[in-house]
Amino acid sequence: MVDITKLRDIAKEVISRDDVRQVIGYRPGTYGFRARPAFVLEPADADELIFSPACINNLATYIVIEEKLPVPRGQEPDSRKVAVMVKGCDSRAIIQQLEEKAYDRDHVLVLGIPCEGVVDMDKVNARFPNVDKGDIALEGDKFVISFNGTKEEVAKDELLADKCKRCRYPTPLVSDEMLGDEVERFADDDFSDVEVLEKKSRDEKWAYWEEKFSRCARCYACRNACPMCYCEDCVLTRLEPMWMRRSVDISENTAYHIARAYHLAGRCIQCGACEQACPMDIPLMDLNRKFYKDVRELFDYEPGTDAEQPPLLSTFSVDDREDFIL
């Protein structure tokens, strides 16, 4: 894992630079085991930065959803960089955003954190319910959970987030400064979870998804947490044309989930932020992973690995499959 003093020193040095506006990192949360995003504007604030397996948020989201207020006449917009701490998966979000030309490479300063996996908060909370304040650390292949003066060791596999169990890029693919030593790839992705769902019969599939979709409360937390959902004018909130109504029923929920997943086709970088944010435990990653798998098999394309490649659906190949066309 990353040395915290080194992390804070680098953050301090970065925020002291003239061309950096803020550093986005993690700090301890106010309750439970959570860590929360920290927006460091002063060198003194950098002392509270941490990195632990509880740092599950994808901070790349904040680069694109930051509100850009109009600048008063005669003033120049603040063009200083935003420094952001990224894990392996988050770095792919930055690459994908660069690929889509969401901002210039000069706009961000990437502080890479080689990551050995983060926890799934739902699993932690199920195992240690009602903890006011606690810490999680990774030591070897065990998570060390400490709270109220007690310390417990749990095998890594039991609490590790599902996305980390199939993480192929633990070390950031893009970074200006690396905060730790490179991590060996420790997992691989065989899409067995998607294949299980694909093998169901048609009625079983719809019964499965109908139950999941009808749970949705349409809070749009999945959209807001997603680093790739950054349209200023989202089709979901647009009134004219109103693609789907606001009512919470199976029809609108299905349309919403299909639209949301489709908008991430060839763009989703498998960070799991949507599923993590979902209060109703809808397996959103299963939807995203279907597209991820298809895109890889049909077009041999992997989002968020190369900032120079054109976005998948804005290009085509003359040899694309067309055996389904009449």
């Binding site: 060839g266 279907k290 298809d294």
Partner: peptide, 16 residues
């Protein structure tokens, strides 16, 4: 064609 290819597979995946 490219867009529809993905959409079609996906609709099948959710049971349509």
């Amino acid at each position: 064609r490219r867009r529809f290819n993905l959409m079609r597979n996906f609709l099948e995946y959710v049971g349509i």
